[in-house]
């Protein structure tokens, strides 16, 4: 393989990692970035989506199963998120530390529940045949390059989710209410916006997207009870790095983190790449405390 091919391959890997980070972080961008709620069980929504996808693929009729798996993951995690909001998060608004502890508890409970039901060893989801192949470049300067369909599919999914979320926030009535609540909660309420309902819908949408991310993740790695834990830190990092309350920032941060990891891994081991990544993020936040996209937000300042 030529050097160009190697470089391009790593670039593709970086973007592939970025798309997964983006899927994991987009839901968090809603709950943490827009609403200021620190949901430590966000990673377990990924896990939930993964297991729901596994169950659907196992029990649903083969033809529609693949699409159904994503639908089940999306709505399953969304409904769970709505329940979580009504029973727990709603009662703890304005108490970030209590929210953090309570949702961490939920996270532990869900991990143990998964361990009891599915066992500690991961379950495998088999991608349908049409996703199993890959595009391989034969010969030429880029000979030996390999683009698996599954990775391309996940990149496409991440872009689609991003576009839909952007459209909801900038183009719909709900999005207008969300932006108003984000800027001045009392005033929005005084103009007739049912802010509690807006909170519920946005939180639930955030967990639903995490469920979708989990279903996508299940295509490339086994679903384990702790699968969420390996992504939650990166997801929070992406949201903070991107700047709170900014979708474009979240996208840029995901790409940045993905490319950084992939390019550093050319020279060093995976764990040392993580060390470098964290150092980079810490340095970046020192220089630009409000992230890539600066927007005035009260989510963290008041906490």
């Amino acid at each position: 393989m030529s050097e160009y091919a190697l470089l391009l391959g790593q670039l593709f890997n970086g973007i592939s990692v970025a798309s997964i980070l983006l899927l994991a972080a987009l839901g968090l961008a809603l709950s943490f970035g827009l609403m200021g709620v620190i949901n430590m069980s966000h990673g377990e929504m990924l896990m939930l989506g993964g297991y729901l996808s596994f169950l659907t693929l196992r029990f649903a009729p083969a033809r529609a199963a693949f699409a159904l798996a994503f639908v089940a993951a999306f709505f399953g995690a969304g409904v769970f998120g709505a329940l979580l909001e009504v029973t727990l998060i709603r009662r703890l608004y304005g108490r970030p530390l209590d929210t953090l502890l309570a949702t961490w508890g939920v996270s532990l409970a869900l991990q143990q529940a998964a361990r009891s039901i599915f066992g500690p060893i991961g379950v495998e989801v088999t991608a349908p045949k049409w996703l199993a192949g890959s595009i391989t470049v034969k010969g030429g300067a880029l000979g030996g390059l390999n683009f698996p369909f599954v990775r391309l599919f996940i990149i496409g999914l991440a872009v689609a989710v991003l576009v839909v979320m952007w459209a909801i926030i900038t183009r719909t009535r709900l999005g207008l209410c969300v932006r108003a609540v984000h800027q001045d909660r009392d005033m929005a309420e005084a103009l007739g916006v049912r802010t509690r309902l807006v909170d519920l819908v946005m939180f639930s949408l955030g967990t639903a997207i995490a469920g979708l991310a989990g279903a996508a993740l299940a295509l490339i790695a086994p679903v384990t009870p702790t699968v969420g834990q390996s992504y939650i830190v990166y997801a929070f990092m992406v949201v903070i790095l991107g700047g709170l309350g900014r979708l474009l920032g979240t996208l840029l941060a995901a790409v940045l983190v993905g490319l950084f990891s992939a390019s550093v891994q050319i020279f060093t081991s995976v764990s040392f790449a993580d060390v470098l990544l964290l150092t980079f993020v810490i340095a970046f936040i020192q220089l630009r405390p409000r992230g890539i996209m600066v927007v005035r937000t009260r989510a963290l300042e008041e906490a």
């Binding site: 932006r179 005033m187 927007v295």
Partner: peptide, 11 residues
């Protein structure tokens, strides 16, 4: 109409 007017600055 609140004190300080309560305009949403980014809308």
């Amino acid at each position: 109409v609140p004190q300080g007017r309560g305009i949403f600055p980014h809308l």
